[in-house]
């Protein structure tokens, strides 16, 4: 397993798309934060506002499923799917003498790490650097840091299930375009359910998915019960997705 993770890290570090995403998102995130810190762009009504963290309002952009979905699925499309389609290198990996479950887990862990870096870590780091650079360091008080740790902890937990879903789509479709398109469609459907559907049963179902929990994670006030529920949904979703992934990979016939 360690060998596989090292191999995946080696591939990720040489993946052009990964570096393009890092560079562009660093620039984009820095620009958004800069605009907000300098009051050139007013963004209000976010959860960060309610937590007295208005300087971090730009972070809310990166927590919208429709937005981070594009980043994650682009990475999956050009890091995972291409191995199955274009180059067919997955064949070499499957016959490397490693168990398919381990191959899936190594891919999942490294892909999730890559997605975490470009979607969560970069916006946070650029935000902290700019806040400190512009003399707003007092924003990062222990209370606010606690809030951010709790919010991002919960968000990351749901995010790990989301990367699992995208990975599954990448493995099933074996096509970069479809890998980008299908998660996007999924997010649009979830968005539509959240905003348009009023059927109580569907609403209830939706509220118990990771998609609803993405926004719940950033609520300034969250009861212990809500927090436990969020953790529970994240963990259960993660377990189901990983088992499903291993099951599928074990049965997959490589072309």
């Amino acid at each position: 397993m360690t060998n596989l993770i090292r191999a995946e890290l080696y591939k990720l570090s040489r993946n052009k798309t990964f570096w393009v995403l890092i560079t562009s998102l660093t620039g984009f995130s820095a620009l958004l934060h800069l605009l907000i810190i300098l009051d050139w762009w007013q963004l209000s009504g976010t959860e960060f506002d309610k937590a007295q963290l208005s300087d971090l309002n730009a972070l809310s952009t990166f927590t919208i499923p429709l937005f981070f979905n594009i980043i994650v699925s682009t990475l999956a499309g050009f890091y995972i799917s291409t191995e199955f389609s274009q180059s067919g290198v997955i064949k070499n990996q499957m016959m490397s003498g490693n168990k398919r479950a381990n191959i899936f887990m190594a891919k999942y862990l490294v892909f999730s790490l890559g997605a975490f870096i470009v979607t969560i870590l970069i916006p946070l780091i650029t935000a902290f650097i700019l806040i400190i650079f512009f003399g707003q360091g007092d924003t990062l008080s222990p209370t606010n840091l606690m809030y951010l740790a709790r919010a991002y902890g919960l968000f990351t937990l749901q995010f790990l299930s989301f990367t699992g879903i995208v990975l599954l789509i990448a493995i099933v479709t074996e096509d970069s375009g479809k890998t980008i398109l299908f998660p996007l469609l999924l997010s649009i459907v979830m968005f539509a359910i959240e905003k348009l559907i009023t059927v109580p049963f569907i609403k209830m179902m939706y509220e118990n998915t990771i998609f609803y929990q993405f926004s719940e994670a950033f609520k300034y006030t969250l009861t212990s019960g809500e927090m436990i529920k969020s953790i529970f949904i994240g963990v259960i979703s993660l377990i189901i997705i990983i088992f499903l992934g291993i099951f599928m990979v074990n049965r997959k016939e490589i072309k």
């Binding site: 090292r6 080696y10 591939k11 040489r14 274009q86 180059s87 290198v89 997955i90 070499n92 990996q93």
Partner: peptide, 20 residues
Amino acid sequence: ALFLNMTARENLEVHRLQKG
């Protein structure tokens, strides 16, 4: 089956790591 964006040496390195 090759990583087309990698050199010959890098291709072999991936497989070396994979096979331990």
